[in-house]
Design a protein around this nucleic acid. Structure first.
Length: 306
DNA sequence: GCGTCCAGGTCTACC
DNA sequence: GGTAGACCTGGACGC
């Protein structure tokens, strides 16, 4: 029994994109935990980042990205034709995720002023991996709050596996706001295992899907950072920690985004393990101005790359 | 296997 | 503005 289900005919194409001289592929991939949350997948051995992209017309494309010399190498696979327009969109989305076109010269110039941060410019550190959409970054950030990393991984895996669109031989796409808005709170609790975060995720998705909240424009917002921070904080489920870190993915580094792990690292590095208040930490980084959140993050994760 | 405790941010109510 | 308690899950631990 069981009928024959034909496998879709897959089309494969390769792209090669030039990179700026200060770009470091692996440092960007491993800039924080996002590379291990689906639809991202990381292959440490082959130093490859994979990602299922959903293009504007709905086409799904699996991309395997690596770096050779000064170029980004992309192998793209899809069930549909990968036209010139689609190739352009794949390139745009990937460069945006990897922050390739973000100018870090101001940050590196600032780093050179401080003895403790002079190690940063030669390493090319500073770019933080982000998702193709602000929505995905915000949902994932809510899933990092008040839980272990393994639970975050489970929630995101459920989101892509249950509500995302399937693709041959891998993870599903990240669900669009409408997909998340189309289920109930109890469904999110039971199947995504998001617990008390479920009403927050549902409300966010419903507001976006219903056109009442526009968050994709945050990446190009002309608002001063403090004002943008207040806007981000107005989303239920996003507190000081989550908003501070979402801002980093929007290219603003004025907030520290402290969580228990970062605090612990700070105590280790600066206070011989002794706990201090958040105000003390904020005071420490205040002299570094608009880059303070990035200095803090690179400082506490420095050992990851050594 | 079961029960208890704890860690992890955010929200709301209250002072 | 500051604080306490509730929210939910998974892991650690003791029995």
């Amino acid at each position: 029994m069981g009928g024959y289900i034909p496998k879709p005919f897959m089309i494969r194409t390769c792209l090669s994109v030039p990179l700026p001289s200060d770009f470091r592929f692996w440092r960007t991939v491993y800039s924080h935990g996002w590379c291990s949350l689906p639809p991202f997948q990381v292959d440490r051995e082959n130093r490859t980042l994979s990602r299922l992209l959903e293009l504007e017309d709905g086409t799904l494309v699996r991309c395997s990205v690596s770096s050779s010399g000064s170029r980004l190498q992309v192998e793209a696979t899809s069930a549909g034709n990968i036209t010139a327009a689609r190739r352009g969109e794949i390139k745009t989305q990937l460069l945006d995720c990897l922050r390739v076109n973000e100018d870090l010269s101001g940050f590196h110039a600032e780093a050179r002023k401080y003895r403790e941060y002079r190690w940063i410019p030669p390493t090319g550190a500073g770019r933080m991996l982000r998702s193709p959409t602000v929505f995905e970054d915000v949902v994932k950030m809510i899933c990092t709050t008040n839980c272990s990393w393994s639970l975050t991984e489970a929630m995101v895996k459920n989101l892509t596996g249950i509500l995302g669109r399937p693709f041959t031989g891998g993870t599903g796409s990240f669900p669009l706001p409408a997909a998340l808005a189309g289920v109930t709170e109890s469904f999110i609790r039971k199947n995504i295992r998001a617990g008390y975060r479920s009403p927050f995720l549902l409300e966010l998705s419903e507001r976006i899907a219903g056109g009442k909240l526009e968050i994709e424009s945050w990446r190009k917002s002309p608002l001063p950072t403090g004002e943008l921070f207040r806007q981000v904080r107005s989303v239920k489920g996003i507190g000081e920690y989550a908003a501070g870190n979402i801002l980093k993915l929007l290219g603003r580094y004025d907030f520290l985004g402290l969580d228990s792990w970062v605090r612990g690292k700070y105590y280790e590095l600066h206070k011989k393990g002794r706990r201090v208040s958040d105000k003390t930490i904020e005071k420490h980084y205040a002299p570094y101005g608009r880059w303070r959140g990035l200095f803090l993050w690179l400082e506490v994760t420095r050992a990851w790359h050594e």
